[in-house]
Amino acid sequence: MNATLIHHDTHDTRPENARAGSRPGTGARWLASDALVLITRGLRHTLRSPDSMITSVALPIMLMLMFVYVFGGAIEGGIEHVAPVAYVDYVVPGVILLTAGFGAAITAINVTNDMSTGVIDRFRSLPIGNWIVVLGHVVASLARNLFATALVVGVALLIGFRPTASVLEWAAAIGAITLFVLMMTWVSVLFGLIAKTPDGASGFTFFVLFLPYVSSAFVPPETMPSVLHGFAEHQPVTPIIETVRGLLTGTPIGNSAWLAIAWCVGILVLVMPISGRLFRRRTTS
């Protein structure tokens, strides 16, 4: 009667050396293997949650269409004196950054999910470095965001975005975007570790959405009231947008590139160790 539920092995697939408590090996090769397994997991999570894909791709595209077609005509005239280009060329780099940040915010939810369900205990009971679980999410976030960014650029080209970048400039732009995504992802990891519930973690999305609005993404900061202007000029998103915009459409970059790198690296240097410590604390109590 129980035989219907539990079947006994016909052939033995038990790992040969498990009983001896040893594993085939440790070291860099296995570290890479562990990382690959968990990155695959992260990517599967991304692919299996269509709503997060929609949020990270469809929403930025809709925003872009709205700004270009609905507000574009009105804004173009208003910003001509500071940004004498077609509005679509002005706005696309901003939308690209918005896309990148948006997708990164999903990492916060994924991390909180792992920490608040039992999954983390399973990983912790394995003889692997636990932080690789986080690495899996970070790499998946990079892949997800770069894919979303590529889609957004594709649509932008269809609606008249005309970049003037050379191959080298494209490469530099992709590098800048990747650095930004990495920074946003790690900040997102930190939020995910602080939040107690996935709902709390999703609050991070609003924060991420807010930053590009008060930057040079949609309108030049010069056209904003003075308080907002000051903030927009000195927040991390603006120099990154200016850098990407300069690389893709040939507007002057000035010292934006250095500022962008300084912001991203500075935030990473700050956030990564804090996340590491928080992760350790949350996985040892």
């Binding site: 697939t13 790992p15 498990a18 594993r23 085939p24 090996g25 296995w30 293997s33 562990d34 397994v37 968990l38 695959t40 997991r41 399973r122 990983f123 394995l126 003889p127 692997i128």
Partner: peptide, 12 residues
């Protein structure tokens, strides 16, 4: 996934 994290190898 867990088998691979125990380093059993893909097929195993």
């Amino acid at each position: 996934m867990i088998g691979r994290l125990y380093h059993l190898g893909k097929a195993a």
